[in-house]
């Protein structure tokens, strides 16, 4: 597959080291330690501690080792897959975030599971295993510290909007009015992939709820929330007129983003890579006071408000929309207008 609009640039090796190599090394050390301790452990061992600090779940020792290895391979693989799919010049803040979270997550589970096994060395009966509590804090601390260190060790994040081009205003005759309306939607293929991911999340949370006899039932809200986000994020109507920019989700018309022409400081067009710049599709937030409606890889209108906040929407023929918006913005500035036009009762014919 070739995409002439965005030459694929390789991510620096250091990003892959932090995302894949370091987490796998952490997991290997964790598995090796647990294997070495195997002769000293009770059978079964405690694998879960209740809120009072006493163990309340038990399993054979090999289950803990399998959990450590399986989690590391599965999650690291997942992070590597997302990183591989997040095309574009890098590393962006999103690439770095993926790498740092992958490392932090591996350290947290590695420290916690290994500590839970280590605590039980020489204990005859697992129900007498000491409290794991302090190790939760230690694991979390290690994860956060390593994450912060890795963030600064990685190359600085590139600004993904380096290719932004200021919009060329469309010349309107005095009294002439223009409106630009376009629909932008996530491709059916991408929607299918997202729905499969939501399905996996649903299956996982149903499993979690059933496996804990319903104790974890609130996790079921996660896939439901995801499903709602998918439904409102697929199709959008983009409208540019004298009052400014309005982007509404179809078919409900909510959520919507409305930016008054008078609040706009700059309009530009740019090329957007959804995963690398916004971490996905739909109604998104990106680091740097920036929101976006992102439906696909390709041209987008980028608006910078007077207070510095940014909004980006991917849409076909973005240059025309951005051009008209630049015209609206400059005429609103000339007439000193701020906010939406009100009291305009002028009607023709």
């Amino acid at each position: 597959m070739t995409d002439t609009r965005s030459p694929r640039t390789r991510l620096p090796l250091s990003v892959w080291v932090v995302t894949v190599a370091l987490p796998l090394i952490v997991a290997a050390v964790a598995v090796a330690l647990q294997l070495a301790w195997l002769p000293e452990l009770p059978d079964p061992i405690a694998i879960h501690w209740g809120p009072d600090g006493a163990p309340d779940g038990f399993a054979p020792a090999w289950a803990s080792i399998a959990l450590t290895g399986g989690l590391a391979l599965g999650l690291t693989g997942l992070f590597a897959l997302i990183l591989g799919l997040a095309r574009g010049a890098g590393p962006t803040a999103t690439h770095k975030l993926l790498a740092v979270v992958s490392l932090g997550e591996a350290l947290f589970t590695g420290v916690l599971v290994t500590a839970s096994v280590g605590l039980q060395r020489g204990v005859a009966d697992a129900s007498a295993a000491p409290d794991l509590g302090p190790w939760v804090a230690i694991g979390l601390g290690a994860a956060v510290l390593a994450g912060i260190a890795a963030w600064f060790a990685l190359p600085p994040a590139v600004r993904p909007d380096a290719d932004a081009v200021p919009a060329r205003p469309i010349a309107l005759a005095p009294g002439e009015r223009g409106v630009w309306i376009a629909t932008t939607r996530v491709s059916s293929g991408a929607v299918a992939i997202i729905l499969v991911a939501v399905g996996v999340a649903l299956a996982a949370s149903v499993f979690a709820a059933v496996a804990t006899d319903g104790a974890l039932w609130p996790v079921l809200f996660v896939p439901l929330l995801l499903l709602v986000l998918v439904c409102i994020g697929v199709a959008w109507r983009v409208r540019v007129d004298a009052s400014g920019l309005a982007v509404r989700s179809l078919p409900l018309g909510w959520p919507r983003v409305v930016i008054a022409a008078g609040d706009i400081a700059e309009v530009a067009t740019e090329h957007v890579e959804p995963l690398a710049e916004f971490g996905g599709w739909g109604w998104r937030w990106a680091p740097g006071r920036s929101f976006g409606v992102v439906t696909r890889s390709g041209p987008a209108i980028r608006v910078t408000r007077r207070d510095g906040r940014r909004f980006t929407v991917t849409v076909d023929d973005a240059a025309t929309g951005a051009g008209l918006l630049a015209t609206s913005s400059s005429s609103a500035t000339e007439t000193g207008e701020r906010g939406p036009q009100t009291g305009s009762a002028r009607r023709d014919r």
Partner: peptide, 15 residues
Amino acid sequence: MLIRVDPGSGVAIYD
């Protein structure tokens, strides 16, 4: 799609 109307152009708006 860009739609422009100029009430001063002498051409009917619907045209």
